[in-house]
């Protein structure tokens, strides 16, 4: 049973990863990445890491990828990818370097995982309680460092987003079109209908004051 699930999830993960780089349309590329991430979550689940699997889906598939999809769907698939002679040489070089690095890392572990039976399952492994205890005792320092890095990133995002907004002051173009119009009376509000607010004679003249003027030839 677990072998079947493993192969389904593993095929999903690999196919998704290949799909990300093989598909031309960025929208489908993001979808493939989601398939990959969900398959990874299934693999985590198979390893009894329930909390990691759930956070994988909540954070990556549920939040980060949503933003990716959001942007790609808005921008559309028409954007040309950056390309050029420099990238064409550098790209394979980087890929090769990464592959060599990964091979060294894998062979460096002397491939114990293939012949061994793996770690024993202990009751309570992978639960939030277990992970939380480890975070606050054994891995306290990395945990705090990661928290600070995340905080810096969050503040940085807010600062970057604020600078570009600039909606506080209206631009000249918008000011030109602003009109100050009092709500016309006798248009059938409840107060008028009930005779609570009787319009005075000068209110009966609707008063529309135009600041600036409409663009040439353009109607409202």
């Amino acid at each position: 049973m677990s072998a079947v699930i493993f192969f389904i999830a593993a095929i999903g993960a690999i196919a998704g990863a290949i799909g990300v780089i093989a598909v031309r349309n960025p929208f489908y590329s993001v979808l493939m990445l989601i398939v990959h991430l969900v398959s990874l979550a299934a693999l985590f689940l198979l390893l009894r890491a329930e909390f990691v699997a759930a956070s994988q889906v909540v954070v990556y598939a549920g939040a980060v990828m949503v933003l990716y999809l959001f942007v790609v769907a808005y921008v559309g698939g028409g954007a040309q990818l950056a390309s050029g002679p420099v990238l064409r040489i550098l790209g394979p070089l980087f890929a090769l370097a990464l592959a060599v690095e990964l091979c060294i890392a894998m062979l460096g572990s002397t491939l114990k995982g293939i012949s061994g039976k793996g770690a024993h399952y202990v009751l309570g492994f992978g639960t939030p309680r277990h992970i939380g205890t480890l975070f606050l005792t054994k891995y306290l320092f990395p945990f705090e460092i990661a928290s600070i890095v995340l905080l810096v990133a969050a503040i940085g995002a807010v600062v970057l987003a604020r600078r570009r907004r600039g909606l506080e002051t209206m631009g000249e173009e918008q000011q030109e079109y602003r009109i100050s119009a009092h709500p016309p009376v006798n248009t059938g509000t409840i107060a008028e209908g009930a005779g609570i607010r009787v319009p005075t004679p000068e209110q009966l003249e609707p008063e529309v004051e135009v600041i600036g003027r409409p663009r040439d030839g353009g109607g409202w």
Binding site: I34, A41, E50, F51, A54, S55, V57, V58, G62, V66
Partner: peptide
């Protein structure tokens, strides 16, 4: 499950793709 509400949020996160 030991992760409780996180399970619901995981599926809520995916259910978004149904709409999108």
């Amino acid at each position: 499950v030991s992760i409780g509400p996180l399970y619901v949020f995981a599926f809520a996160g995916i259910s978004f793709y149904g709409i999108m």
